[in-house]
Design a protein around this nucleic acid. Structure first.
Ligand SMILES: [Mn+2]
Ligand SMILES: [Mn+2]
Ligand SMILES: [Zn+2]
Ligand SMILES: [Zn+2]
Lengths: 153, 153
DNA sequence: AATTTTATTGCAACTTAGTTGCATTGTGTT
DNA sequence: AACACAATGCAACTAAGTTGCAATAAAATT
């Protein structure tokens, strides 16, 4: 997501009061080129402002509830977050590397029809869709430590 | 998954030696009507045989590596497992309830075309697909504790 | 059969993500 | 200032999953 959303607008849209921490969290997430986990998020934010992890988790929960952020499961079940903005960051599937845990946004792939289809096939009121591919990323595939084990090229 | 896979066949297919614990784990999973988490799995297995959680986790990892089981992320990032058998339990999306955490298999919905599409759009060697919907399940929707909060009906 | 080797399991201790309760601080209002 | 209430911090906790190593079981050699 190169074109960044306006942080103030996002907060307004969710009717969430603006605070130093909230703005800080949102800034870091909206600048990240890919979905980001609380761990990295803490590291980044703390470069400028001290913040407790509990505060971060609470802000993240709030943002997800207010539809300012999308939450998805990354590697091993740790959560990842990205800005929820149809304009600058429309819904898209993700790729997670089994080996290094890296998550890649598969942007530009429309999956709205998948949503439609699932909604109509069963009587379900879904609110979020989490479409994820798992495999081994390019980097890991070329590492000799990986090749050595007789894995498929 | 009503029609159960043959446990012995599954082990043979994955070239995995048969042990009491492995058979036990596989039996419970293959009898479960829905994807099951290690926690419930332990409970079930222990009704007949004592087993350490480490053993269970190791068996699960092994089975996933050998493609005997599919692993997917359930609620909050806890993992869930189901038998990987195209015949008796073909790949399908899942629905996870935001409130109670219950996971439902959306069987009978073919998503092979989604796989195809993703594979061809980007140069990715994916090995597994995890397509998940999140929302509030029927049970939770009708609970008064849920309605009271002014949630949409 | 006895011995050696290898695979599987159990135990204890640890790591890490996320949560809960409560005290403290900040912010806006009268 | 005094009050109300929202946001934050701190400490302690829960729960999933992992790691190292010892104990046991199974398989292979002798
Ligand atoms: Mn993304
Ligand atoms: Mn399923
Ligand atoms: Zn990788
Ligand atoms: Zn539910």
């Amino acid at each position: 997501m190169r074109k960044r959303c306006n942080v103030v607008e996002l907060l307004a849209r969710g009717q969430v009061a603006s605070t130093v921490h909230r703005v800080g969290v949102l800034k870091v997430i909206s600048r990240s080129p890919k979905a980001i986990a609380p761990r990295s998020l803490l590291q980044e934010i703390r470069k400028t402002t001290p913040i407790d992890k509990v505060t971060l988790y609470r802000i993240l929960d709030l943002f997800v509830a207010k539809k300012i952020l999308r939450r998805m499961t990354g590697q091993k079940g740790t959560m990842c977050y990205e800005v929820m903005c149809e304009k600058h960051n429309p819904q898209h599937p993700h790729f997670v590397c089994r080996t290094c845990g890296d998550m890649e946004c598969l942007e530009g792939i429309d999956i709205s029809d998948v949503k439609q289809r699932l909604r109509h096939t069963r009587y379900i009121e879904e609110e979020a869709i989490d479409l994820k591919l798992e495999g081994v990323c390019g980097k890991c595939r070329t590492k000799k430590s990986f090749k050595k084990k007789g894995n498929p090229v």
